[in-house]
Amino acid sequence: MFRRLIPALYLSLIATQALAQSDIPVETPVENPEAAPEQILVVGQRPGPGLWKVTKDDHVLWVFGTYAPLPKNMEWRSQKVESIVAKSQEVITEPSAQLGMGWFRSLTVLPFMIGVENNPDGKVLSDLLPPGTHARWLALRKRYLKDDDDFERKRPLFAAGTLTDKAMAAAGLSKRLHLDEKITEIARQNKVKVTSTKVDMELDSPIKTVREFKKTPLEDVACFTKTIERLETDLDALRARANAWAKGDIEGIRALDFSEQESACLNAIQNSKIMQERGFGGIDTKMRAAWIGAAEKALASNKTTFALLHLKHILAKDGYLAELQAKGYSVEQPE
């Protein structure tokens, strides 16, 4: 989500990771104990899921459901999507958030970023985690992180993010296929207007914020614990979801739910004292309002609009498309 060369604050990267790791919350997970774990990930060109169709009178908003992680050896390609994007009057990007301060101010902050990942007061993970959780972490650290003791000084949130990235890579998965960039490029090649739904949150005192962050504990043990649980039990399910997205199997994605880790990690950021004091809480609410607003404006103005949206916001009972439907728009699922 964040495209600045130097992020305003490393917090923003972690918030992005928490959002990007989100899974599909469903009302009743479907259990299939007889299903064999997916050990082979799809490769080659894959189209992903079909498009959701939102209409008002004769105006259409086509919505493409994004997801991560996906098979790292897969190449996304959909002629149908490319054709619709080329014929649209507007493309709406996936909702995102960014803490910012400008290029020159960011340079002044860089020296103060040293140690920002570490726990305050010299604490280590064994001081913060229950003994059983720490033992499970050590086993995964040895497996995915070369058993480096330097990770013991990291905040649980940062350690969890690095561990997740390494475990995903080992499982043949990647969060960096950049589908949004590919679709945006198709739009620009066809001179289609691109509307960003990024929420910018400017820091007035970035150096002070960094200093305070380095001294302030986060309520991130729950995020860490849920990450450990996810990596111990959910890697096969993550691979199954990745394959389901690549094949366009929406029901396959619905059937595999593991959303508690995402919520715990996001809450560690947006409910933190620093974010709340600066009015940056409720990140997800602000992103939702930005995307819904852009979608309604486009539906009022354009014959055809194309939009990107994470599958969790599409499929959730109280998701973005459910809100549009409640407002009187017609919503059709892909066949």
Rank of each mutant, 00 (worst) to 15 (best):
V221T: 15
C223Q: 01
C223K: 00
T227G: 05
L231Y: 02
L235V: 15
L235I: 15
A237H: 11
L238V: 06
R239D: 09
A240G: 11
R241D: 11
A242L: 04
N243K: 05
A244M: 06
A246T: 13
D249E: 10
E251Q: 14
I253D: 12
I253Y: 01
A255W: 04
A255V: 05
L256N: 08
L256M: 10
F258R: 10
E260R: 06
A264F: 00
C265F: 00
L266I: 09
N267I: 00
Q270V: 06
Q270F: 01
K273P: 02
I274M: 14
E277T: 09
G279V: 02
G279P: 10
G282S: 10
D284S: 15
T285Y: 05
M287F: 02
R288I: 03
A289M: 09
A289K: 15
A290P: 10
A290V: 04
I292E: 14
G293D: 06
A295R: 10
E296G: 05
S301D: 15
N302E: 14
F306Q: 06
A307V: 07
A307R: 10
A307P: 09
L309V: 11
H310E: 12
K312F: 13
L315G: 05
A316P: 05
K317G: 02
D318R: 01
L321W: 07
E323V: 13
Q325M: 10
K327W: 10
Y329G: 07
Y329V: 03
Y329D: 09
V331A: 09
